[in-house]
Simulated scan of single mutants.
Amino acid sequence: MSKERKSTVLLQHHLKQLKLPTMLKEYPLLAKSCSREKCDYPTYLLRLCEKEVADRQRRAMDRRIKAAKFPLLKTIDSFDFASQKSVNEPLVRELLRCEFIDQYENVLLIGNSGTGKTHLATALGFAACCQGCKVRFFGCTALVTQLLEAREDRQLQRMLTQLQKQDLLILDELGYVPFSKAGSELLFEVVSRAYERQSLIVTTNLPFENWTEVCGSERLTGAMLDRLTHRVHIIEANGSSYRLDQSRKRLAKQQKRAAEN
């Protein structure tokens, strides 16, 4: 084996051992590129390291997005602010910087069904993933069900501990299904543990005065609201249903085509 070939084999072995897959993949092409540009060795090494770091950050971001378990991946670019004029766009844009997570602040998205609350919550969660935060998305009913099942299996503390490891919890669609007394108490436990330790995004179709319909106890509801609203950004979405508007437009187009034929 030639000396040059031996060096190449050893380099590839060491890069594999050090778990630097991008450097392993990119070093030959980058070496040729830097040779043509007559770059010095530190510049070549810097560029190679930059590629490894960038690829590692991208893979980590992809893992965070997958771990968040968004029902559908939505970004702010696809949200139609023009159709939902009640939504405070400047506030949403500010929240996309995710400084509220650093401050352990909450976001409440309140409004009618179909106005894009889940879309906005997901977009904020996606932005948080891109900025290095650990995020987990739950439908409220599904979360309460999982908590009840975990309690039955004597795994409740383990689940609560896992939830506390997140930087941001998204609780979607609070208000569509009332909870049992036990379910409400477990949801309160999640909110209570998150208070001033992590951030919550909650979407709901109910005004605050009607939360007792879902949570049952006025005392528990008051305590939950007290924690959620202490340091909070409230976004109201009170326009017409986007899904209903789209259905009406499709129906109008179908009727128009039928009349033309």
Rank of each mutant, 00 (worst) to 15 (best):
D226C: 05
T161R: 15
E209V: 15
R197M: 01
Q164E: 15
E218M: 13
T118L: 01
L228M: 09
Q198H: 08
Y176P: 07
S192V: 05
E209A: 14
I235D: 02
L206P: 11
L147I: 04
Y195K: 02
A121Y: 02
A237Y: 06
R136H: 12
T145N: 08
A194M: 04
N112T: 11
F179Q: 06
Q157G: 15
T115E: 10
A258G: 14
E218H: 13
A258M: 06
S247C: 13
L171F: 08
R193T: 04
E213I: 09
R257A: 15
F138W: 09
D172T: 14
L186V: 04
L225I: 07
T204V: 04
R219S: 11
L174A: 07
V191L: 00
C133Y: 15
Q157I: 04
T161A: 14
Q246K: 12
Q131W: 11
V232M: 01
E185Y: 04
L200P: 00
L163G: 00
T203Q: 06
D153W: 14
D167K: 13
S199C: 11
V202L: 12
G114R: 04
R250C: 03
K181C: 12
N205D: 13
R193M: 06
S180W: 10
C129F: 03
Y242H: 10
C140M: 12
G222M: 03
S240A: 13
P207H: 10
G175K: 10
R154A: 15
P207C: 07
Q198T: 04
A223R: 09
T229V: 13
I201T: 01
Y195N: 03
L147F: 09
L147G: 03
Q162G: 10
E209N: 15
G116S: 05
A252I: 07
N238F: 11
R151M: 07
K165I: 09
R257L: 08
H233S: 09
E218V: 08
A128M: 05
Y195E: 01
S241M: 10
L225Q: 01
W211T: 02
S241P: 13
G222S: 05
R136C: 09
I235H: 06
L163Q: 05
V190M: 01
G216Y: 06
A223W: 08
G139A: 15
R219C: 03
K181Y: 13
A150K: 04
I234R: 10
V177T: 14
R231E: 01
C130Y: 02
I201D: 00
Y242T: 04
W211L: 01
I234F: 09
F208N: 01
Q155D: 09
Q255R: 12
T161Y: 13
K117I: 02
Q155T: 08
S113I: 12
S217I: 08
L244C: 08
W211A: 02
K165M: 14
Q155N: 13
F179L: 12
L169Y: 02
